[in-house]
Amino acid sequence: MTLRGKSDSNSDEESNISSEHAPCDWDLVIKPRNAWWNFQLTEVWRYRDLLWLFVRRDFVSVYKQTILGPIWFFAQPLLTTTMFTVVFSGIAKIPTDGIPPMLFYLAGTTPWNYFSACLNKTSTTFITNAAIFGKVYFPRLISPLSVVISTLIQFGIQFILFLVFLIYYQNVGADISPDLLQIIFLTPPLLVLMGLLGLGTGIIISSLTTKYRDLTFLIGFGVQLAMYATPVIYPLSSVPQQHRWLILSNPMSSIIETFRSIFLGGEIPWHGLAISTSITLIILFVGVLMFNKVEKTFMDTV
């Protein structure tokens, strides 16, 4: 063990300044910044057990909080769709393409709620997890990922509600034609797409909110407004042809339309779906980039 005084260590620094740590000699090199292309996806994979434990934690904590816990997931879409039926169908007389309004709105709000929950929850990743992020390292991406997965539980409950209505309306002979094959093969990819879109947008916002808290106010009503820019309470067919591109530039539009088509019948907008997928991937890419940049220093700005 060598005894080193202060002046000694200064001379040490000078000799070290030029020599960077070569990554090959070390398992890990901690530097001020990561290379922008370093997505750390291998790290995320290594911590996959943590991902599932977070999902489990979210589930258990929601379930344990109240006896009514999961019932609220039923109550919320039931009350909103009833309200939509009264206001948009009953009073405003917005057409629903001949589909029973209640079912039409449920088919829109069920996927939309999943997307908006993903977006809302992931957009506060850094702020809500500041305490734990400040004390221990794990790939930060685990947190928003776990949110996207655990929100599926909420979706599942609302989806069951939707299916109950679907079966009921089919039995009373409403004009709907669910395509079982498409339901089985298209629902999972649609969910993944929505989850990734919510995740991408959410982590972009969460990266920005560490510095700009103002954005949290925006997101609150922004998501609500975005629902009206998405064909949730109206069919795309009711939008005038010349304005349709505007609605379709929203990647959620084609997803909601597709969801409705496979359960209630109609054309699947393949073209729009392809555009949505590309936009989703771009947003996700930008999101992960920004997220990785912010996660290194957010503890100093949050």
Binding site: E20, H21, D25, W26, D27, L28, V29, I30, K31, P32, R33, F133, G134, K135, V136, Y137, K296, T297, M299, D300
Partner: peptide, 15 residues
């Protein structure tokens, strides 16, 4: 050292 926050300058090698 525990990667909670990153340094402003310098680097650390860890095995």
């Amino acid at each position: 050292l525990s990667r909670v926050t990153s340094p402003t300058e310098g680097s650390i090698g860890v095995k």
